[in-house]
Nucleic acid binder design. Structure first.
Lengths: 179, 179
DNA sequence: ATATACATGTAACAAGTTACATGATTTA
DNA sequence: TAAATCATGTAACTTGTTACATGTATAT
């Protein structure tokens, strides 16, 4: 049984065949906006997926100095992924360092505390702008059919937008209340 | 320098002295609603904090069969925590298995997909109810002074409330659009 | 000349989860 | 009498991050 990262990779490969390098690039913007990984995690995981026959690879000459391995999802991989997505998701206790800091913020000096929160606000705003640009791009592509991958790109993006908006609203409320 | 978990423990101990066991209980509802840990992580971390003189412990006879160690935050611990909370929080790429599943949901069968999302909705709703009960309890305690730990309990709880409400709204939108 | 992109991998470390280990007291 | 609570710890394992390693082609 693949790890969660394995399913992330299968999800990317179910859309189109990619090399390990491309997958690592793809995941710099997190898959579904909520799952990232670095190349050092990805390469070994691809080997495991291949050992389990969930993906196949073939060596193709790339533009770079090295040959690249192009990975393709197998029928078994597609089945495994389709079964996984409909299984109830594990209850997640989302860890958040910013909330943990907030929990002890009564100890910090008031000026520094305000700056910390307003820095948070800025970063959330930056993320929101990025998401809004992507959303505009998706929406330019015409009507969304809820049976296509593109619709689910949009669905996960909406969650990102919502997440950032409520984070900003919370920062604003806190800054307001603290003053 | 303590780990993030170390700061979570310092945050709890800054409010009142507690034993390792009590800290483990406290963290079953995540600190600030967004940071949890199990006892097997907590005990070694307390030893490290004590080695760094950020906390002190004294053995007291407990109700159980074993002596318990009561931990108290030191002045140095308080300083370290106060410095940490105002430092800019690391940009977090919140991982979410449910969003990762959503990303590949176009592959799953439509009935199972709906059930998965509606199961999500249920669980978020349960969390929301729990948070609302806690909020009511805090609000019953009278006006909130933004210089007290209690205010920051409330502040982090508000983020939890907002998080669950947005998650539910998103599930509703998705269920609606999929049908 | 220097940096960036290409391209894949391993090693060392940090963080987090699950299971193992012990054993008295209270509650159902 | 069986289960839950109290109470602290270690061991094994999984996951994730940062650093190490190599070396060409292209753009500035």
């Amino acid at each position: 049984m693949p790890s969660t990262l394995g399913y992330a990779l299968l999800g990317l490969l179910a859309r189109r065949p990619q090399t390990g390098y491309e997958l690592a690039q793809s995941m710099r913007i997190p898959v579904g906006y909520f799952w990232s990984a670095s190349h050092s995690q990805i390469y070994p995981e691809l080997s495991r997926l291949e050992a389990d026959s969930l993906v196949r690879s073939r060596v193709v000459p790339g533009p770079g100095p090295r040959d690249t391995k192009l990975y393709t999802i197998s029928a078994a991989g597609r089945r495994a992924l389709a079964a996984w997505v409909v299984m109830p998701a594990a209850l997640e206790q989302s860890r958040s360092e910013e909330l943990l800091k907030t929990y002890s913020l009564w100890l910090g000096d008031p000026v520094g505390a305000r700056e910390m929160i307003s820095g948070l606000r800025d970063r959330h705003h930056e993320m929101l702008s990025r998401y809004e640009r992507i959303a505009a791009e998706i929406e330019r592509g015409g009507p969304l059919d809820p049976a296509t991958p593109r619709f689910f790109d949009y669905a996960t993006l909406r969650r990102g937008l919502s997440f950032e908006r409520h984070a900003i609203a919370w920062c604003d409320w806190l800054l307001d209340t603290l003053s």
